[in-house]
Each structure stands twice: as C-alpha cells, then as structure tokens.
Design a binder for these strands. Sequence first.
DNA 1: TGCTGTCCGATGGTATACCAACATACGAGC
DNA 2: GCTCGTATGTTGGTATACCATCGGACAGCA
Lengths: 228, 228
Amino acid sequence: MIKNADPFAALRIETPPSTLREMALERMRRAIISGLYEPGARLVERTLCEQLGVSRSVIREVIRHLEAEGLVEMLAKQGPIVARLEWDDARQIYEIRAALEATAVADCAKVATDRVKALLRQSLSELDKTSQQNSPLGILDATTSFYRTIFHAGGHTIAWDIVSRLNSRISRLRVMTLSTPNRTTSGPSQIREIFACIEKNEPEAAAAACRAHVAAAAAIAESIIGGK
Amino acid sequence: MIKNADPFAALRIETPPSTLREMALERMRRAIISGLYEPGARLVERTLCEQLGVSRSVIREVIRHLEAEGLVEMLAKQGPIVARLEWDDARQIYEIRAALEATAVADCAKVATDRVKALLRQSLSELDKTSQQNSPLGILDATTSFYRTIFHAGGHTIAWDIVSRLNSRISRLRVMTLSTPNRTTSGPSQIREIFACIEKNEPEAAAAACRAHVAAAAAIAESIIGGK
DNA sequence: TGCTGTCCGATGGTATACCAACATACGAGC
DNA sequence: GCTCGTATGTTGGTATACCATCGGACAGCA
C-alpha cells in the first residue's frame, strides 16, 4: 500500500487545478454547498457561463460531474437544477454516515499512532477556535479534517470519498444544525469524546461515541426540517 | 413517501432514454463493466466518437459522468483511461458492501411483507436457472435484482445507489469470482440462506448470513488477484 | 370573457472548429 | 554511435454555431 519512496518526488512540479474545468467544478461545488445557489434553483447554462467566465462546454461537463455526485438534478426538457433534499434522503445519509464513520473510528482507535493523535489534536484545537468564533463554515472545515485524518489513518480512503460526497449533499443541513443554540458546545464535546477514546485506543467506545455524535446531529437536523 | 395516486398516470407518455448522452452513458458504462475496455486502456475521445457514432461533446460529458462514478480515471495531460482496480481498493469496497448490505438485509428481515418475499423468491429462481446455465452475467443480474429488492424494501435507496456504484467498480472481479469452481454452487446457497432468514423475519441471522456471503466473495477475489 | 392557435424568445442538445501541449520520429552535429 | 533539436501528428481543452423544443405572450374568434 505504501508507495516505494521516490527520492525525486520532491522535484516533481505539480500543476494542481490547471484546467478551467477543474476550477469551475470547484467553484460550482462550493457555490452549491455554501447555499449560494438555493436547492431547486435552475442552473441556466448560459447564465453560468457569464458568471464563471467560461464557455458552455466547460459548464456542461461540470454539471455532468455534479450530477453524478448528486448535487445537481436533471429535469427532463428543463435542464439542471440544484438538487433538493428530502428529509428521507437526509435520514438515510445520516444512517450511512453513522455506519461508515463508526467503523472508521474504531479502526483508527486500533492503530492510531502518536502522529495521528497529534494531527487529531490539531484539528480539535482548530475546532475550539472556530466554535468560539461562532463560524459555522470554520467548524465544518475543522470537523472535516478531523474525520479525514481518522478515515485515512485506518486506510478507509474509499469510505472517505463516499462520506465526503454524502456530506456535501447535506451541507446546508449541517450548517443549519451548527447554528442551533447549544450545538456549538455539544458538538465539540462529542467530538472530543471520540478523540478521548481513540487516544486510549478503545475501538468499541470510540465507535459508540461516534454513533452518538451522528445520531445527535441527525436528531437536530430532523427537528429543523423533519416535518417539511 | 407514497405519491398520491394519479388516475391519469397511465396516460403519461414516458420518453426514457431519449438523449444521445444518456444512451451513450449506458453503453459506455456497460462496455467498461463487461470488460470490453480493459482497465488502464486509454479512452481516446475521437475514437469513441466513431465507435458510438456521436460527437465529442457527448463523449466528453459521458466521460465526466463516469469519472465521477469512479469508472474512469483522468491522467493529467494524457486524458481518460478505464479505472484500474488495486486490491486494496477492492478490499475496502467489499468491506463497505458488507456493512451496508448487512444493515439493509436486517432491516428487510424486519419489515418484509409477503410481496417482498415473493419478489425475492423470483430472483432466487432466476439465480438457480442462470447458475445451472453457468452464465456469469446472468448470475450477476439475478443477484443484483435480489439485493435491489432488499434495499428498496427497507427504504435504503441511497445505500443502494452507493452499493451499485461500488459493484460496478469491482464488476470484473465479480465475474471472475463467479467463474471459480464451486462458486457457482456456494454462492447461490449462501444467498438462499439470507433469504431463509428474511423469510423467517430474523434480522440478526440474516445480517450474519449476508456478512458471510460478502466475506466469502472477498476471500475468493483476494485469492485471484490479491497478490497483484 | 374565455378559449385556442400562433409566434417568438429562451434553453438545452449536438456538432464542429480552433488551439496548445505532448509524444514520437527523424535528422543534424558532435 | 550517441545526443540533442526540430518537425509533425495526435490528443485533449475550449469556444462557438446550429437546431429542436418548450413556455409564455399575444391576438383572434366564439
């Protein structure tokens, strides 16, 4: 699994986003996730061309990608719209997240090295800072990096891809739950609990804490839009 | 979740695949899954245009979609290739499948109605027929329809999407495992075991049987390409 | 007043044209 | 003979042109 260390790796010149398409994809994805485009809003291709300053080819390919990611829906004979989120879908997503994250957390607790623990501690302090600043997007980023470390430490790269994608579909919901009173304090404390179990290398307890965390988030989400 | 029954629904004219792009997407996906394009093979756009008889715009949008699905990889400055499958990825996929399928099977066992059981029985007989004919693709289809019924019965539509996508990434592997001697008999018997537990509405046992089934498939897969 | 037929703008579907970057082959020079 | 530079063809990236269809506005007719 470990690549054979290439001594010349440091010399390699990386050209990260390079193509217009990749940049546009990133922008569009963030625009949808951040709520700039409302769910159900039509994504008129020519309008997007002007807004992003690229041609329709680029926009269309980006839309195909987002469609496969589940962030964009295609209405027959009407074109793309920002995907709407039914509560039932959100519920399923929280369920799947609970399963995958609990597994990842448990595995991480089994194998966590000092280095991993240090990374997690770093994400936690970032989380503290952003939650004191009451910055929902910052909290989201810190939480994301916390979980990313966990998934990668346990070798669950594919599960991480899936979870990331699912999370982007419920991103608006996540931001809303974070704005709930007292969520700013209960969220970090639950994550801290997960970390404590990992630090002590207790897989079972870590998984349980993780399930509790996701369940709490799902409950808040339901109280917000459940009835809709 | 149930739509209000529209008495005029039967009048509605459906135009299912209509666009060139959707047809091309279907064709390409099947071509990759069936192994017509080998893993790692370059997908030269202009060549695909001729093979499918469509323009590059269509091909490119299809490739974007398949890329997001994980069936196609983009090599920087070289273009798309059919995604290669490392054993480590396959291992992770089997792991995730085990988790999601076990959950779905358990939920199905909890709520399975006679109608669902009848559908499952139908898939089973299809499975028997195809495995006697030693038709790997037929077995795959029957297994797929068996699981589709299970996931939908329990309301796990999103998990089903995920599992379908994962399965398409390991499709070649699945066909190879089905061609293994005695797999043609052990596979169906394990699935039959799952069904027996569902029929008796025993969630725990069903989940266990399901995990065993996936684990067995993973073990065979590893014995085939594990060392590679 | 209300229905219907027609026109026109908006929009997505599809095809094509152009360009830059890369890979390969080939030839000149050491 | 080996190496380097150059020419050329292939390929993906991007932009644009054209067409069919849909939806709404408007006008005519009962």
